[in-house]
Amino acid sequence: MGVSDEALLAGMAAGDPQAATTFVRRYQSRVYGLAAAIVGRSATADDVAQEAFVRAWRFAGGYDARRGSVLSWLLTIARNAAIDTIRLRRDQPYDPDILLTVLSADEASDDRQIEQLADTDQMRTALRGLPREQAAAVVLATFYGFSAREIAERERVPLGTAKTRIRLGLARLRDHFEVSDDKTA
């Protein structure tokens, strides 16, 4: 077993080049993969992924292990960096249906954490089971940072309908994927 994620993050924050190198190698494919899923495979995805690591380094002191894994925290940072880029450059984000196909596909993951793999499989199964309109609403909000009003405009439905889709979609995912506090303790 190698050095823990938390130790690598602390080392990177302290300016240790070796810790930073190991941390980047460990998670670059996950961070770049998420960036590419949101902004497309391009130089933009490269920029977003780089920015995510820079922000992780800058805000390492804000990581709270009680709230989730380092990977989950890092991917949230990457998602935020991607959304910032989309808004700043006014790019048209990908069609949610394309992203849904990517997210729902079985993945031969190289993830080293078996427990995390099981969770991911559960989540993927749950997402596949959602009605398309609920899945699209959840994905537009979670990955692209769309507000309920923006989702309503994009999907051409009333605001209340968009809100209901987000609420029902996330509730169904939660019901399928029982979140256990023990797993993140």
Partner: peptide
């Protein structure tokens, strides 16, 4: 619910930069 939303991000397939 936030954990579920964060968990969705894990579904993005890894890709080599």
């Amino acid at each position: 619910l936030a954990k579920v939303a964060d968990g969705l991000l894990m579904l993005a397939p890894p890709a080599e930069p």
